[in-house]
Nucleic acid binder design. Structure first.
Lengths: 342, 342
DNA sequence: TTGTAAGCGTTATCAC
DNA sequence: GTGATAACGCTTACAA
């Protein structure tokens, strides 16, 4: 029994050709005569040859590997995007190297470096805001990359994502149009997170435009967890007058907030109109009348894959691609009549 | 401006040592004199040297890379496990190569091959049931691996996971003990999925032991999606007499089922006791009185990481490691009194 | 169409 | 402790 893995040389010997020909058969089948090709393929099958990617990468300077640098996989929306990304890249022969920095800039620096060491051909980053060191590395290695989920104004980086600020503003305007005046927001942590920051900003701007105030007590900033959603709701709901609408930074926060409303005997959206961003499919199940801002997270993964593949191929890619978000109105969410409040 | 990446040779030249010494400084710092080490480190910093992983992998036959072969990232439970896995492996200097086969055996074969081509040092598979070809490849390359989420009886493969059958049986027995006699199950697709199959089997066995029948109309097999949960509930709830308890194959199905109950004006768990497996944190928010079987999915990822690292290091690893699941009883879920049913 | 051979950037085995 | 140097398995001009 042979311990040594089968190499190109073995295949070449067995097929009576040079290793160059075998290599060509693998990379450019059309550049090899049909007979030779057939013989080589049969030999490969017979010997069970599996190419050595490291050697390939070393010689060709391409690893057929793409790095995905994201905050976390615990956010189902990110998971969906990464899944779609992996699927699309896989079909193109690329494998995804996963790296989660958990919103820690130092971790992100470290991981970016590691991904580059691993020889990724391209990088898909989540978010537009990154450490200078990260951008410097990418720059120095001339690594094709694409920023996702958010959009960057400067035009310095190619990005594909959502206009988080506009989405938040639109959702807020919708609530205002319905007559809500007492609004609150349960935001995600805005540090190192331009998505959360943009959403908060969008809400604030829309309110300002309408001359509606957002009391400090009605804006809480919490991590993206279910429990934080509950806690956040508990905080803002205590304000007087009670908010009639609560905007949540993402799915998880909204789900937690709705649960807390239920726990307090508050109907959603009859008593409190809870709203939020991202997928919100589950949240809508929790509360069928929900109005939400839906982000096509899967489509984002697919398009990001196309984008990075194009960039690798040296094709020009749109510097800024915005994905449309959709306001999903599932029921009437007008504020409860005055006087009916606690 | 230099287009060529900085190599070991550049570092060696600049530091006035041989490349061997630089290599050593990187891999075995203690085997290099402090002065030399310092000089080399400073040079590396100054030149911005980043190691070439492909070359490293080719020469050392180790890529510092682990493959994660899973069904999907759209299942939040899997995402959590992969996240934990990535985190733990990252701390040990390993990077995760992600591959989702979406329950397609052909895709799994293809992906397993690709991961091996990429030179992964080890493989973490989700589930115990895999194509013979997958096992053959692993075998041929003597690739350290670990199966996760489920447990394998034969002892042929090292695995770490949950006893899905026992968990299902335990949950069922709990329901029976509460007095439920009219049970139904919304199962995941059992083909190529021993987790779903084991859970279904556990339910069936527990029922058989208690002499309770499970009508064919009360067992539906559906994909793991929210909508399937709704549809599944719609199907089983139509049976007469109406089931008093519905066991769902996983989180997503349970959430969908609960939503459908709500839509039908059925209280959960007052009218119908919906239960399920996996994380169930969200499901419990939907319906605070829920009784669920909680699987420590994050811990699984952590432990799987330790396991595969040990295997790579050549240490002996326990062939079979079972993670305890926890029955979480959040409220009384006795069946509604007879006659109160529709 | 096929073969020859020079790398690709490391690691690791020897000497010194 | 350090330095030559032969692999590692493949790609890719360049020749034939």
């Amino acid at each position: 029994m042979n311990r040594r893995p089968v190499t190109l040389i073995d295949v070449a010997r067995a097929a009576n050709v040079s290793i160059a020909t075998v290599s060509r058969a693998l990379s450019f089948p059309h550049k090899v005569s049909p007979e030779t090709l057939g013989r080589i393929e049969r030999t490969i099958e017979a010997l069970g040859y599996v190419a050595n990617g490291s050697a390939r990468a070393l010689a060709s300077r391409r690893s057929r590997t793409i790095g995905a640098l994201i905050p976390s996989l615990d956010n189902p929306s990110f998971a969906t995007t990464v899944h779609a990304l992996q699927r699309a890249l896989g079909e193109a022969g690329y494998t995804v190297l996963l790296a989660c920095h958990e919103f820690d800039p130092a971790a992100e620096r470290r991981l970016a470096r590691t991904l580059i060491e691993r020889g990724v051909d391209g990088l898909v980053l989540l978010g537009t805001e990154h450490e200078p060191e990260v951008y410097a590395l990418i720059e120095r290695f001339r690594l094709p990359y694409v920023l996702t989920w958010a959009l960057e104004e400067g035009g310095r980086h190619t990005c594909i994502g959502f206009d988080n600020r506009a989405a938040a503003a639109r959702l807020t305007e919708h609530l205002l149009a319905l007559g809500h005046r007492e609004l609150a927001m349960i935001s995600g942590m805005t540090a190192n997170n331009e998505r959360a920051r943009e959403r908060a900003l969008g809400v604030r701007e829309a309110l300002r435009r309408s001359g509606v105030a957002l009391d400090p007590g009605r804006f809480v900033e919490v991590p993206y967890t279910l429990q934080s959603g509950r806690d956040g709701l508990a905080q803002v709901i205590g304000q007087s007058p009670r908010p009639t609408a609560v905007i949540c930074g993402n799915d998880l926060l909204a789900i937690g907030a709705i649960a807390e409303c239920h726990a307090r005997g508050l109907g959603v959206p009859e008593d409190v109109s809870v709203t939020g961003f991202d997928d919100m499919e589950i949240a809508a199940m929790l509360s069928p009348g929900l109005t939400t801002m839906h982000f096509p997270t899967q489509e984002l993964g697919d398009l990001a894959a196309q984008q990075i593949l194009r960039a690798i191929a040296g094709e020009t890619v749109p510097a800024r691609q915005e994905l449309a978000v959709r306001l999903v109105v599932r029921g009437t969410t007008a504020p409860p009549r005055r006087g009916a409040e606690s």
